[in-house]
Design a protein around this nucleic acid. Structure first.
Lengths: 354, 354
DNA sequence: AGGCGGTGAGTAACCAGTTTCTAACACCGC
DNA sequence: GCGGTGTTAGAAACTGGTTACTCACCGCCT
């Protein structure tokens, strides 16, 4: 599959060669410490520290001398030492179930931008959809940072409540847990489904098929509940998943269900089913209408372009930062915010046949 | 756009309320330190440290007592203190130009998986395509980690060479810099273009249009050079970009160029142009053939499915970890590896008309 | 002239671990 | 009974910063 041309150095199991820069303790090479600068400038370590942190109570001339010395020696303060002394890391953490999911990618982006702008580093961890792992990772990530943004659609409410003080300050996204004091940013799934259903029934659709998301997903549960609650619908629920291939594989089941409209758990399964249906020579939206969820960038480039609900994904990341920042400053950070999705009618839905 | 229902607590500019847990220095709440455990177990800090790190030279019974005390007090060693004492962070960093790009997302994923498996944290930074920013971020990220994976398609060779010792150990991805001792993982763009051209000319295409990627991108330059080097081609280069919309917008220019086949810089512009062409009622592949690059997950779900070259994207992340790990252990890490892409012929290419 | 307030810089005590060095003790052979 | 050896565990010295406290010095006011 891949030919590695010039590659060579492969796994010298253990290279006990003596060339390891003198194995004596933790030495980040010959980097200068604050003491070095202090000595070079002929002042105390305290003064160097003050200068480096822009304290005003240092004589300008002395400050200049210190800065010159620091410059000359190419001094950069040890991050580790600062962390220890200050008790903060300058880092925030994001834990998500799956980095392949465009939803979480958007949050990652929004957060990365916002945190970057504020000069904070971002730690990212991925749990592979394992709720237990998620919680463990969250704790671990939190210990390496000053605050946490947690997307954990699967972990039980109870568990999150129990761990909440170990995780604080933190913000929950795509999820809301009753009785948790952490702010949460979530999507109003019921409202979104309401809009989709209104749109479809308005075009005469009664028999709907729902391509269900992963079992255990909080978002899926809410969407399903909202569909079930909608009156006058003949609903078939088809187990599906969250990826392209899941949707693609469900095309046959959709046809067999006899539904005139398909509500996809998300845009990916909707795109998948679009392709699957075309291969079965089912016309969209002529024979069957299809809707998605999320409005991923790709949704407008499917054939036909996907009718879906748009959620402010990267806004979520930016907002998460906002809240977290407030929390880290001892402010309130607000409580629960539900974002209202917006229906985007594109080419994949049309009037019901007959 | 979004109505925040239950939100309230908004920007109390400064909350000098007295409830801040006693403002006296860096206090991570009332967490126990190693001294607390030592006292509780009636041993010295050194012994607790030894037990926590699994040193064998502690009497089993004593070790058990220490562990019990640690357990009871819910002790977790301070990450910051360990970092300082050990001189390593347990973290690796990834710097990419753009987290919205599927290519970098895949690397992120592969790296995240591999690093996670090895119990390492992952720091992520994004430069927004600004080469100078990229370099600064890389240095900053590196100072907070033990090693770096750098995707920097734009930064000048010279600059990277100059900074190389400040960044080491590090691995370069999607990029190769002559005279740099860091291992690099890159794509054999020339070979990939070769396969695409062979496929297209084999179907009778002579007049090609290339949808060029962002100017300054190393990958784009290589692909363009390879196209120019191919004999017997009538090539039109159309400035385009790297996103869906760029491709979509280029559809008109493609038609005007009179080309019978379009080579897209990547799958996104190819998908975009696919949609654009359909709207102009140009048949693909009947009138025009289209090829992409990268094989993003979406490529098989376009209409028609996109002919493209597949590159082992997440393999790149995993490999990057492998190399970096070797480097961090003082081993060689290998030199340059060029991955050979594989042509995937799908529905978007066909015989040239006439 | 003496007392006083304010300022700038140094001393030393932190932060919370790890690790070297050393002392105490048990066990062994002579 | 004594010296040699090996194992444990503690004391103390690190890691590299920050900062509370202290003190010397200066000008000002009475």
């Amino acid at each position: 599959m891949r030919a590695s041309a010039e590659d060579d150095g492969q796994d010298h199991a253990a290279p006990p060669s003596g060339g390891r820069t003198g194995r004596r303790g933790p030495r980040p090479a010959g980097s200068v410490t604050i003491s070095g600068v202090a000595a070079a400038a002929g002042v105390s370590r305290a003064t160097v520290s003050r200068v480096m942190n822009g304290s005003t109570s240092v004589h300008p001339e002395l400050a200049a001398r210190v800065r010159a010395a620091a410059e000359r020696l190419d001094y950069a303060p040890s991050v580790a030492a600062r962390r220890l002394a200050l008790g903060r890391t300058g880092t925030i953490a994001l834990v998500v179930p799956d980095l392949a999911n465009p939803l979480f990618q958007s949050v990652l982006r929004g957060l990365s931008q916002a945190a970057g702008k504020a000069g904070r580093q971002l730690l990212v961890a991925e749990s592979n959809e394992d709720p237990e792992e998620e919680v463990v990772l969250a704790i671990e990530a939190r210990r390496n940072s000053d605050g946490l943004v947690l997307a954990s659609p699967r972990a039980p409410d109870e568990r999150l409540r129990a761990l909440s003080d170990r995780l604080a300050p933190f913000v929950l996204v795509y999820r809301q847990v009753p009785g948790l004091e952490a702010p949460s940013l979530s999507i109003d799934n019921a409202a979104a489904i309401g809009e989709i259903v209104a749109h479809l029934t308005g075009s005469g659709h009664r028999r709907l098929a729902y391509l269900a998301g992963p079992p255990g997903s909080a978002g899926n549960a809410e969407r399903l509940a909202a569909l079930r609650a909608a009156p006058g619908l003949d609903l078939t629920v088809l187990p599906c998943g969250s990826m392209f291939d899941d949707g693609y594989a469900a095309a046959g089941a959709v046809v067999r269900s006899g539904a005139s409209a398909v509500v996809g758990f998300n845009d990916m399964v909707a795109s998948g089913v679009l392709t699957g249906l075309r291969e079965l020579e089912v016309e969209v939206p002529g024979d069957v209408s299809v809707t998605g969820f999320d409005d991923i960038p790709f949704a407008r480039y499917t054939t036909p372009p996907l009718t879906t609900v748009s959620i402010p994904k990267s806004e979520l990341g930016a907002q998460a930062w906002e809240r977290l920042w407030a929390l880290m400053n001892g402010e309130s950070g607000g409580y629960n915010v539900r974002f209202q999705p917006r229906l985007l009618v594109r080419g994949s839905t049309g009037p019901a046949r007959s």
